[in-house]
């Protein structure tokens, strides 16, 4: 997105949050809260928990904006990660193994190319290409873990595979992705 005064980038807004610019914080919330909340909803599958995760993530944005270094990572990664980690912490604390809740809908599994949404992002094309190098089963593992917040045991149940096998597949998939994305 081109940066200008009327259309600041997320990184610029975070920089202004570090200077305690409330208007920038409001704008950042307007632009990003739905994406963060969507991710939190997907992982927690609980509106109240998701709201807590989104709330906590934005409080962290305000409090820790000075820690964001645009030379060391993308603003989108920083923002989305705050919400993901909070949501994951919550489901871990609440015991996602015990709940074993099933996803309402796996959008990532639908359509002829369920990963095609990646192609809309400048840095998504490479990930899309590299995910295609994995077998369908291993690609699903990565997507279910990252997007749905599945634990090892949930993945094992979902794919009807021993947990040790799942762990090994995940490691192999991550190694392959890292190598592919480096090329």
């Amino acid at each position: 997105m081109p940066a200008d005064a009327a259309n600041p980038t997320a990184a610029e807004l975070i920089g202004r949050c570090a200077e305690k610019d409330r208007a920038a914080f409001r704008m950042l919330y307007s632009q990003w809260s739905s994406r963060l909340h969507g991710v939190a909803m997907r992982i927690t599958r609980d509106p109240a928990l998701a709201a807590d995760a989104t709330h906590d993530a934005f409080v962290q944005v305000w409090q820790q904006a000075a820690r964001f270094d645009p030379t060391r990572g993308e603003a989108s990664s920083w923002l989305m990660s705050l919400a993901r980690y909070r949501a994951l912490d919550m489901v871990r604390r609440r015991g996602r193994e015990v709940l074993g809740h099933e996803p309402v809908k796996e959008e990532a599994d639908q359509g002829p190319d369920p990963l095609s949404a990646l192609l809309t992002a400048t840095d998504g094309g490479a990930l899309h290409r590299c995910l295609q190098t994995l077998s369908e089963e291993r690609r699903r593992l990565v997507v279910l873990a990252f997007v749905e917040g599945y634990s090892h045991s949930q993945l094992a149940a979902k794919l009807e595979a021993p947990i040790g096998t799942v762990k090994s597949w995940i490691r192999r998939s991550l190694t392959g992705l890292k190598a592919c994305l480096a090329t």
Partner: peptide
């Protein structure tokens, strides 16, 4: 985080 965050676009 940089490698995998594009996956949030699926949500």
């Amino acid at each position: 985080e940089g490698r995998l965050t594009p996956l949030t676009l699926l949500v």
